[in-house]
């Protein structure tokens, strides 16, 4: 039954498999070939958007250059995705949730530090904002940020420590409270602390929170990006209602080319054209169709996006680097909310 030759054959096959497993496709893609591949490393809520953009751009590129293009996608939490790129994931372009995450990649030397000025509008071709999703008929009567801290209202939001979207939510609440109390940070801290007292579960990502709220029917109000809230209405709707508060934050998810990667793989022309495509009327229309606010107002049908007075991260926290250090790092405001005796 156990003839040694068999074992030798098995061992040899195994060895071949293991050695063959070391793949070296770092040089794939490239400029002049009949086909090319680029990798777009993005964050969670852009899956549907880029599925459409990729198809449209590939057609556009084929028509223009005759080259057939495969655009690969990777999605995950924004911070995690940035970390993967820093650690060697060969992304030609990154399309992330916060400029802070791209700054980290730049700090690692993969992207020109002045990246944000390379494309119009701070390199953010579309924007979004934090809104509320409530149960049908809005039984709790939630209209504005102040309503979230009523006793007994359960608020669902992802964990700001692990989710880029949750940081926008947090800073929106912070900014609203600052404005209400004439810039008094202690009051703003109290407000945010009261708000998070009402949060029974902090999912690690935005989509986890949506599922908790919609599928598990936990909570009275979900804090979400406008595009995510509208997508949830489209896909899971029926029993939900969207509430756009009068004031909120301007979320600018930025995009850029990863210089080190495109130079090595000779894909800069494709990658740049791909990102510029997002600013064309067609790209803007696609963004609007996926509920991102286009920079070009003409791209969206009138009344598609209700008017909201929007403040920026720079205004409420002095930019992302400062916001990160003051609020979300170890021992920051967010940690203090949960400190014992608070």
């Amino acid at each position: 039954m156990h003839h040694p030759p068999h074992r030798a054959a098995i061992a040899a096959t195994l060895l071949a498999v293991v050695l063959g497993g070391c793949d070296s496709e770092g040089g794939r893609g490239g400029g002049n070939a009949a086909s090319a591949t680029v990798l777009n490393v993005s964050y969670d809520p852009t899956r549907e958007l880029y599925a459409d953009v990729n198809a449209a751009f590939a057609a556009h590129w084929k028509e223009k250059t005759g080259q057939s293009l495969t655009i690969e996608q990777s999605h995950g939490g924004s911070g995690k995705q940035a970390r993967s790129v820093i650690d060697g994931l060969a992304a030609d372009v990154v399309t992330l949730a916060l400029s802070y995450d791209i700054d980290q990649i730049a700090k690692a030397g993969l992207i020109d530090p002045a990246w944000q000025a390379r494309l119009p509008h701070n390199s953010a071709p579309y924007t979004s904002t934090s809104v509320f999703l409530v149960r049908k008929g809005n039984p709790r009567g939630i209209r504005d940020w102040g309503d979230l801290v009523q006793p007994g209202v359960q608020v669902i939001t992802p964990n700001p420590r692990t989710s880029g979207g949750a940081r926008w939510n947090y800073l929106a609440a912070w900014g609203w409270a600052l404005e209400q109390h004439g810039g008094d940070e202690a009051k703003a801290r109290e407000f945010v602390a009261a708000l998070f007292k009402n949060v029974p579960v902090l999912d690690s990502g935005a989509r986890g929170s949506t599922t908790t709220f919609v599928e598990r029917k936990i909570g009275d109000v979900l804090l979400a990006w406008e595009n995510e809230a509208r997508l949830a209405l489209d896909k899971l709707g029926g029993e939900l209602e969207l509430i756009v508060p009068p004031v909120s934050i301007l979320a600018e998810p930025p995009v850029t080319v990863v210089d080190k990667v495109v130079d090595k793989r000779a894909t800069r022309a494709i990658a740049t054209a791909y990102l510029e495509f997002l600013y064309t009327p067609e790209g803007q229309r696609l963004a609007a169709r996926h509920h991102y606010r286009p920079r070009d107002a003409a791209a969206a049908p009138a009344g598609a996006f209700p008017a909201v007075r929007l403040f920026t991260v720079d205004e409420v926290a002095g930019g992302w680097a400062k916001a990160q250090a003051a609020h979300f790092d170890d021992g920051g405001t967010f940690d203090q909310i949960y400190a014992p005796g608070n």
Binding site: G79, A82, N159, R161, T162
Partner: peptide, 15 residues
């Protein structure tokens, strides 16, 4: 493990 993940997300490998 979640706390570890949190620190990783914040680029804090050492932590």
């Amino acid at each position: 493990p979640l706390l570890i993940m949190t620190r990783l997300e914040n680029y804090d490998y050492a932590g």
